[in-house]
Amino acid sequence: MNSTTRTIGRTAGVLTAAGAMALVATPALADSHTATVSVLHAVPDLPVDVYANGERLIDDFQPGTLTDPLSLPAGDYDLALYPADAADASGEPLLSAMDVAVPAGANATVVAHLTEAGQPALTPFVNETGDIPAGQARVTVRHVAAAPAVDVRAGGQVVVDGLTNPNEESLTVPAGTVNADVVLAGTDTVAIGPADLTLTEGATTVVYAWGSGDAGYELAVQEITGQHSAPSGVPGGSAGLADESGMPLPVGAAVVAGLALAGAGAVRLARSSR
């Protein structure tokens, strides 16, 4: 217990700095008072209770589960994770992060996970929320597993290479379903998958590689919607049959005929009056 606490104390110290930095570097998009925060549990075999500022936020949070986006007032948060079976907020937290700055307008996911060396950690990731061109999807890959560098392949092609824990990479790709797997960097040794991933148009799909050699490696998926763009227009016709710019031919013909008739009448009128 003592060694665990020390380890966690170290983790927490690192986290506070990293958390504050990561979340501050966020463009303000939402309204001016709240931030959008999701929490992902990616530490295998360890159900926890999550506390924010001493108040219980999530009860009995299971590995491999994700909260829906929470709208939180902007501010500094003290986060702590306790074993789910412990009495409420008693004893030493498994993980903690003090004064995590959550600025207004931020969209972030806080991930409880293992480091490459297998130590528990809390890492806040800033989610990209900029507009995505019509027809496209954004995919963000995050390495939060107790594993060395990996490559991510889609349809057998490497699309992200050499990704290390706890880093991420984003791509914008045509919307649709891709067959993806995760391999040890530079090899064909499959660590996770393959799995079919639905990349929704106009949304960011965040794919987490998580787990450990002992507990197994898995994928977790988070979808952040509402970044779609409208098409640039609607085409629709090439013949001019529906043209409404001028008079149709029969009307024009009637006018010409009418004028001719009037002209003829006028000429006869003029002649007879001589």
């Binding site: 009307v251 009637a254 006018v255 005929a257 009418g258 008739l261 009037a262 003829a264 006028a266």
Partner: peptide, 13 residues
């Protein structure tokens, strides 16, 4: 004829 023609030329459009 003149009146009819004019009527047609104006009336049709």
């Amino acid at each position: 004829t003149a009146v009819l023609g004019l009527a047609l030329a104006v009336g049709a459009p």
